[in-house]
């Protein structure tokens, strides 16, 4: 039982990070139909930015805030300079643009930062908390707590504010949204900025556990994309569930089956789910969008 619990803690921690990235994918996809392959690089900017700002002498909260703002700026620039000019391009072209952006961000980061691994001090110390025979790190609680808070905040924003409703309306039907006077360009920029902020925040809280490096984004992009697809692209609930599921599957596969093939198990699960539910677990959009 304690082993099961231990694995579950690990899986939920990793899964919470994936969930935040998957949510970032979902936000951008809903607003613009774009799959943003630079999503994981926001996580890197959050982590690496905080590390280097702290090294420059800033306190953790200040450093984290500036790093998140920097990621938001990168997100807005990505939208303004790369996505906006290519409006109407095919999905593959859009994927390639964001992959190009991801390579570009990594290329600049390795010059701006460096190529070594870095870590941040854990926010509340390194003493493991014993729970039912297993242990959990205080930082894991920070990760899960942050994820939960962001999900709730996002829900409240989308469902209970005018701007949030505008985002949802744009996602549902861009033309109609335009007709009722919604500033679609602003909504799109908002989606990019928000998802960059979520990714960067995930990077800040996760770095004490996962460590960070200029090219760590690719891994998070792949896992986050997989999570978003598993849940059903475009569905925020699906993104969260997909993220947690992939985290748990990986961890349990490593613990009970084979640590070598845990990534294969996660991707096999996705293939199987997609075969029976071609639009993911929570995908229901009937209209063919691609």
């Amino acid at each position: 039982m304690s082993e099961f619990l231990q694995l579950a803690f690990s899986g939920l921690t990793v899964g919470a990070i994936y969930a935040l990235i998957a949510l970032g994918f979902t936000l951008i996809y809903n607003a613009s139909d774009v799959i943003n392959f630079a999503q994981g690089d926001f996580v890197m900017i959050g982590g690496m930015g905080t590390v280097f700002l702290m090294a420059a002498g800033l306190a953790l909260p200040v450093a984290a805030l500036i790093a998140v703002i920097a990621a938001v700026l990168v997100g807005l620039l990505l939208h303004r300079l790369a996505i906006e000019p290519a409006r109407g391009a095919s999905p593959v072209t859009l994927i390639m643009i964001t992959i190009g952006a991801s390579i570009f961000i990594k290329g600049v980061s390795q010059i701006l930062f460096d190529k070594q691994f870095h870590s941040l001090p854990a926010f509340s110390g390194d003493t493991p908390i014993p729970v039912g025979g297993a242990t959990i790190l205080p930082q894991s609680l920070w990760v899960m707590g942050t994820a939960l808070a962001l999900v709730v905040a996002l829900y409240l924003f989308l469902e209970h504010t005018l701007v949030g409703k505008a985002v949802l309306a744009t996602a549902a039907n861009r033309l109609a949204a335009k007709l009722v006077g919604i500033n679609v360009a602003l909504v799109l920029a908002l989606a990019f900025g928000l998802s960059a902020a979520m990714g960067a925040l995930a990077g800040v809280v996760a770095t004490p556990i996962t460590l960070t490096r200029y090219d760590i984004g690719t891994l998070f992009t792949l896992k986050g994309f997989a999570a978003a697809m598993l849940g059903g692209m475009g569905n925020p609930v699906g993104a969260v569930v997909g993220g947690l599921l992939i985290g748990l599957i990986e961890t349990f596969a490593a613990g009970y089956l084979s640590s070598t093939y845990k990534d294969a198990v996660a991707f096999l699960m996705i293939l199987v789910v997609l075969l029976f539910m071609p639009r993911g677990l929570f995908g229901s959009r009937a209209v063919e969008r691609v």
């Binding site: 790369a82 190009g100 952006a101 390579i103 570009f104 961000i105 990594k106 290329g107 600049v108 010059i111």
Partner: peptide
């Protein structure tokens, strides 16, 4: 190199 490659693809 990497930055240029990314930029060119975009």
């Amino acid at each position: 190199e990497q930055a240029v490659l990314g930029l060119l693809i975009m």
